[in-house]
Simulated scan of single mutants.
Amino acid sequence: MKRALINIDYTYDFVADDGSLTCGKAAQEIEESIVGVTKQFVECGDYVVFAIDTHQRNDNYHPETSLFPAHNIKGTNGVELYGQLNAYYKEIKDVENVYYLSKTRYNAFLGTDLDVKLRERGIEEIHIVGVTSDICCLHTAIEAFNKGYKVVIHKDAVASFNHVGHEWALEHYEKVLGATIV
């Protein structure tokens, strides 16, 4: 079965202590795992997608504007991948099986060419890592399930700023989406 890794929103604004919408320590604690999983997929020749939340400055029409502080603004360091993942991405960004995808909604499929890219490659199984487990990772997993993909969640490579939401999402992935938790 052909597989892909969807690496969601592991950016400065979501991870760094001074990020504008940070998961803080919970996200920082998964750094080694998220980099390790990403390296494994790249080295195996699997398709690796960096699905990164990207917003425009002063976009008062975006639905998140009233829910969250401004974050991942295009052209700022907030939208850059965080820490070791950023350093690794710079090494692999031109590798054929690596794709950087800017997204504007929680769901990485919505308004993007993600489904087309996956289907072109015959991908049947999607592995998800990143933040936040109960928002962007969850909405992407739900859409993947609805599109018929097998979903795998890397438990040690997802995090949230909401511990209760994180635990709920892990159960939801498994019990409602039939996802494999590894």
Results as ranks from 00 to 15, higher is better:
residue 134 D to L: 04
residue 25 K to F: 02
residue 100 Y to R: 12
residue 109 F to L: 07
residue 151 V to M: 11
residue 15 V to F: 08
residue 142 I to W: 10
residue 51 A to D: 14
residue 34 I to M: 07
residue 56 Q to E: 02
residue 96 E to Y: 09
residue 111 G to Y: 09
residue 73 I to M: 14
residue 146 N to Q: 13
residue 4 A to K: 06
residue 116 V to Y: 11
residue 5 L to I: 08
residue 110 L to G: 02
residue 29 E to T: 00
residue 108 A to G: 06
residue 177 L to H: 09
residue 90 K to V: 00
residue 52 I to M: 09
residue 89 Y to L: 02
residue 99 Y to R: 04
residue 171 E to M: 11
residue 14 F to V: 00
residue 72 N to C: 08
residue 78 G to A: 07
residue 104 T to E: 12
residue 129 V to G: 12
residue 66 S to D: 14
residue 18 D to R: 12
residue 86 N to M: 07
residue 159 A to D: 09
residue 102 S to D: 15
residue 71 H to G: 01
residue 21 L to N: 07
residue 150 K to N: 10
residue 6 I to L: 13
residue 76 T to G: 06
residue 151 V to D: 13
residue 120 E to A: 00
residue 74 K to N: 13
residue 22 T to E: 10
residue 12 Y to R: 06
residue 87 A to R: 03
residue 24 G to M: 04
residue 28 Q to N: 15
residue 80 E to C: 08
residue 85 L to N: 12
residue 47 Y to W: 04
residue 160 S to C: 10
residue 181 I to Q: 07
residue 5 L to G: 05
residue 99 Y to A: 02
residue 66 S to R: 13
residue 12 Y to W: 14
residue 162 N to H: 09
residue 139 H to Y: 06
residue 137 C to I: 04
residue 68 F to M: 09
residue 63 P to N: 04
residue 7 N to F: 05
residue 135 I to K: 11
residue 85 L to M: 11
residue 46 D to F: 09
residue 154 H to Q: 05
residue 73 I to G: 14
residue 125 E to S: 01
residue 157 A to W: 03
residue 39 K to Q: 08
residue 134 D to Q: 01
residue 116 V to E: 11
residue 172 H to L: 02
residue 84 Q to A: 06
residue 147 K to F: 08
residue 31 E to M: 03
residue 139 H to E: 07
residue 144 A to H: 08
residue 168 W to S: 06
residue 140 T to H: 05
residue 94 D to T: 11
residue 161 F to K: 11
residue 107 N to W: 12
residue 96 E to K: 11
residue 160 S to Q: 13
residue 154 H to A: 06
residue 6 I to V: 08
residue 176 V to R: 13
residue 48 V to F: 15
residue 13 D to V: 00
residue 96 E to I: 00
residue 122 G to Y: 05
residue 16 A to S: 12
residue 155 K to P: 11
residue 38 T to S: 14
residue 155 K to Y: 03
residue 130 G to V: 07
residue 32 E to L: 06
residue 171 E to F: 04
residue 9 D to V: 05
residue 22 T to I: 01
residue 71 H to A: 00
residue 53 D to R: 03
residue 48 V to E: 15
residue 68 F to V: 03
residue 175 K to H: 08
residue 23 C to D: 15
residue 2 K to S: 05
residue 62 H to M: 13
residue 38 T to E: 15
residue 172 H to W: 10
residue 140 T to M: 10
residue 88 Y to R: 01
residue 140 T to F: 08
residue 10 Y to V: 01
residue 39 K to H: 11
residue 143 E to L: 05
residue 24 G to V: 05
residue 19 G to H: 15
residue 86 N to H: 15
residue 24 G to F: 12
residue 110 L to S: 06
residue 83 G to P: 12
residue 174 E to D: 02
residue 11 T to G: 07
residue 171 E to Q: 10
residue 51 A to P: 10
residue 113 D to P: 03
residue 34 I to L: 12
residue 175 K to Q: 11
residue 39 K to A: 01
residue 9 D to I: 01
residue 155 K to Q: 09
residue 124 E to S: 05
residue 26 A to K: 14
residue 37 V to L: 12
residue 20 S to R: 13
residue 175 K to S: 10
residue 63 P to K: 04
